[in-house]
Design a binder for these strands. Structure first.
Length: 419
RNA sequence: CGGGGCGUAGUAUACCGGUAGUACACCUGCUUUGGGAGCAGGUAGACCGAGUCCGAUUCUCGGCGCCCCGACCA
């Protein structure tokens, strides 16, 4: 990708109506565009990041048997009235058509997925079923805030599972928990599986997956010795208390965190609402047990920026960076050899399957470096008169600042070995 | 939804009851070239409506929008 052709530009200053770090940096970098409070469009670089996050989530969901679907965005009001959400859940958007017919858009999609599953699950032999989608969600929040971390429109992976027995549900629930932790690890985040309230339909606990960040909206208590972590909303303990779950007498610390996923036992709430039954081994109509598993894709993107950026800009982990290499050509407009060398490097890297943003603009070094820091691609490779003379390119890792000098073959070897 | 704040070029800001200045960005030219360059010239702006006033971007009221705190977030 040529930076001179990229239609977005960086800017020095963030718009004054954005206070959150994630929105400031993402707008300055040209990753996103604000449409209105809580609603953002994702521009070429931002879209690439989202797609990479989605792909990691997709791979991990597929590994535990998830089958991806895509549900409708526009929904009839009837199923929402059937479950009580139309009048009972105040974040549900209500749309009135010109013929006065009522519609809504999904804020979570039990109302849509349950009837779909019911159509195909007729026998205990058809269970379990695990289906998910990655798509837009809409919530009529009274107040959007924190940039892309809490909007009225956002991207979520929502997965639903249907089971014959509680034991089978519990087995899958444990698998899902592990899959979630793998997702966050691959994204370069440290997430804690946090005990939280189970919501409206169960007395059981649920897990929220929390990433420690000052930008978060939740407060959690976590043990410094074991993996125990709990949302303060449901905890009767406090900071400094001894952890009751671990054998090592760990101490609880309190911290701000952002919820980037949750997994719920829905019991038979929805399968009963939609009279979804299957015939069990005895031939008796039975309601499946249902689970719901969410991951906030756009929120994850915001959390990654919040958690990993520094005072010069964004620092993308290798796993989600929009492109791997920022090829920065210095003085190429006045030195044809530099430009030719940069073009050659661009060609070879691209042919080796490595994604490259080539800063081929006629701009000064300071501006290019500042832009490079802001955009936050993992590896900057500089081509200039200096590097031509040295016969090696200057390679700087964005995250660590570590600098090395490599030939084309060394660079490609390095990137393909770690790719 | 309660409370607070803010709406001036693409972005960030200044001043002002007499129609607006600066910086960056953008366009033209020259110089410069390893950490957001310099000079010269240029394009571009008062959220909407009503009121007060000879005159409103400025004051008042209403609307809309945006931000923050809180509440809310099955």
């Amino acid at each position: 990708m040529l930076q001179s052709k990229l239609f977005t530009k960086t800017r020095k200053e963030a718009p004054k109506d954005e206070v959150s770090k994630n929105a400031q940096l993402l707008i300055r970098g040209g990753y996103i565009h604000k449409e209105m409070a809580g609603v953002y469009s994702y521009l070429p670089l931002g879209r690439r990041v989202l797609e990479r996050i989605e792909q990691i989530v997709r791979e991990e969901m597929d590994k535990i048997g998830g089958q991806e679907i895509r549900m409708a965005t526009l929904h009839p009001s009837e199923p929402w009235k059937q479950t009580g959400a139309w009048d009972g859940v105040d974040v549900v958007f209500k749309i009135l058509s010109r013929t006065e017919k009522e519609y809504t858009v999904g804020q979570s999609e039990e109302e849509i997925v349950t009837p779909i599953a019911a159509e195909y699950v007729l026998s205990y032999k058809d269970l379990p079923v695990v289906i998910y989608q990655i798509g837009q969600k809409y919530r009529d929040e009274l107040r959007a805030k924190s940039g892309i971390m809490r909007g009225r429109e956002f991207t979520m992976k929502d997965m639903y599972s249907f089971h014959e027995t509680q034991e089978d549900f519990d087995r899958f629930y444990a698998q899902a928990k592990e899959a979630y932790l793998r997702v966050y690890e691959r994204l370069g985040l440290v997430a804690k599986a946090t005990e939280a309230s189970g919501g409206a339909f169960t007395n059981k606990l649920s897990y929220e997956f929390m990433v420690l960040t000052e930008a978060g909206e939740d407060d959690i208590l976590y043990c410094n010795s074991c993996s125990y972590c709990v949302n303060v909303e449901i905890s009767d303990q406090k900071e400094g208390d001894t952890c009751t779950r671990c054998s090592a007498n760990g101490v609880l610390s309190q911290a701000k965190a952002s919820e980037v996923g949750n997994i719920f036992d829905l019991g038979t709430k929805y399968t009963k609402d939609f009279t979804f039954t299957y015939k069990n081994k005895e031939g008796i109509e039975t309601h499946p047990i249902m689970g719901c598993f969410g991951i906030g894709i756009t929120r994850l993107m915001g959390v990654i920026v919040e958690a990993l950026s520094d005072d010069r800009g964004i620092v993308w982990p290798e796993s989600v960076a929009p492109l791997r290499v920022h090829l920065v050509e210095l003085g190429g407009a006045d030195n044809a050899d530099v430009h030719t060398e940069a073009a050659e490097l661009y060609r070879e890297l691209t042919e080796a399957g490595i994604s490259v943003l080539w800063d081929d603009r006629d701009a000064r070094a300071g501006e290019k470096f500042a832009d490079s820091d802001l955009l936050g691609l993992p590896l900057r490779v500089v081509v200039s008169e200096k590097t031509l003379a040295a016969g090696k390119f200057e390679c700087v890792e964005r995250a660590s600042g570590h600098t090395s000098h490599k030939s084309i073959s060394e660079l490609i070897g390095h990137l393909t070995a770690n790719g």
